[in-house]
């Protein structure tokens, strides 16, 4: 895995690089238009309102796949920043519950690592629009961290 990624993650941790640089490395993250807001060590991921992410044209509502991809990418960045030897985690599985329609608005997401093992990470992701107490979707995912036996 590339040394540039490792250097970038370390620079982000040290406050010498913008978290956004880490996101903008990923073509698909740019495709969705993902942004990040860092407040101290707390990260909130943002999927700005963008008509390219619409699914239902008449409501209008966001495409469930765009919201899912946003949450998955948020979790990947979140784990990367916690790894001793940063390498892009591989998604093993991703399970999402849709609780409310994603309106044509900005969407926010936060992650909680339930367990960061040596090989596998278990992450919970929650996304909201109005306020974080009313999530539009919640997701649970497992990521493979090491390349051994992958």
């Amino acid at each position: 895995m590339s040394d540039t990624l490792k250097a970038l993650v370390q620079a982000c941790r040290a406050g010498e690089a913008d978290y956004q640089d880490l996101i903008d490395r990923v073509p698909y993250a740019r495709f969705l238009g993902i942004q990040v807001l860092a407040q101290g060590e707390e990260l909130t991921f943002i999927l700005p309102r963008n008509e390219n992410n619409l699914g239902n044209p008449t409501l209008p509502a966001l495409h469930g796949g765009a919201v899912a991809g946003f949450m998955e990418q948020a979790a990947i960045i979140f784990i990367l920043l916690q790894m001793g030897e940063p390498r892009v985690p591989k998604t093993i599985d991703f399970t999402i519950d849709y609780l409310r329609a994603g309106l044509y608005q900005d969407t926010f997401a936060e992650c909680r690592v339930t367990r960061l093992g040596r090989r596998i990470a278990n992450v919970h992701i929650s996304a909201w629009q109005k306020n974080r107490e009313e999530p539009i979707t919640i997701a649970r995912a497992h990521f493979l961290l090491s390349d051994e036996n992958a």
Partner: peptide, 16 residues
């Protein structure tokens, strides 16, 4: 692409 080092598609695109 989800991983710029390998060129593998992002899981989110497959999900969609």
């Amino acid at each position: 692409v989800g991983n710029p080092d390998t060129g593998v598609l992002h899981g989110g695109a497959v999900f969609a």
